[in-house]
């Protein structure tokens, strides 16, 4: 079966097929989950592509190895993967902080106030990423999952092993932190003041 025909099969069913040695399921799962894990790792790590690739490879390797013993109905594959990915990223961030820091945070491109919408979108995404990197790890994780990846609060609570109220509090504090970090750049980014 080609993988586009597998698009309506749940991740958990594909993983069970993978554990039975189904190569099409392996390809479909990689195509479906690889980009999501990579994007989350890039956002958590502040845009370091090589590190994000390492984390993606490690997270998926753990998934493949967990596949034969995966218990259907207990955990969603994406929830499990987001948790593993975030933990791998936070470990790396802590190690990075122990050494020389800050070079990894991408600087916003020069010439951001451009008339070209594409350049503005890029500048905004970069500015947001730089601001995200000023937040504590868990706040950054909650804000990314809620406002960029678009997950629900109960799902984030499961990923982060927290209550829903704690997730709401983390995202609220995260957004206040972002506003403070971006307060001097609103005009440059074409944003209206309050």
């Amino acid at each position: 079966m080609p993988y586009d025909a597998m698009s309506d099969i749940a991740d958990e069913d594909l993983l069970a097929a993978y554990a039975r040695g189904d190569a099409q399921a392996a390809r479909a799962l990689t195509a479906r989950l690889g980009p999501r894990v990579f994007a989350h790792a890039m956002r958590m790590l502040g845009g370091d592509r090589a590190e994000a690739e390492d984390v993606t490879q490690e997270a998926l390797l753990r998934l493949w190895r967990a596949a034969p013993d995966w218990r259907m109905g207990e955990a969603r594959v994406t929830t499990w993967l987001y948790r593993v990915t975030a933990n791998l990223c936070i470990d790396r961030m802590r190690r990075r902080r122990a050494g020389p820091a800050l070079d990894a945070i991408p600087e916003p491109e020069d010439g951001a106030p451009s008339v070209a919408a594409a350049m503005m979108a890029r500048a905004r995404a970069d500015a947001l990423q730089a601001a995200l990197m000023t937040l504590p790890d868990r706040q950054r994780e909650a804000v990314i999952l809620r406002h960029i990846e678009g997950l629900s609060n109960p799902e984030i609570a499961e990923i982060m092993d927290l209550g829903v109220r704690a997730v709401e509090s983390l995202t609220a504090r995260g957004k206040r932190g972002l506003e403070a970090a971006l307060s001097g750049r609103k005009a440059e980014l074409g944003l209206e003041d309050d």
């Binding site: 947001l128 990423q129 971006l182 609103k186 980014l189």
Partner: peptide, 10 residues
Amino acid sequence: TGLDALFAAA
């Protein structure tokens, strides 16, 4: 405060 526009861009 414009954060929505930044999230959309991201």
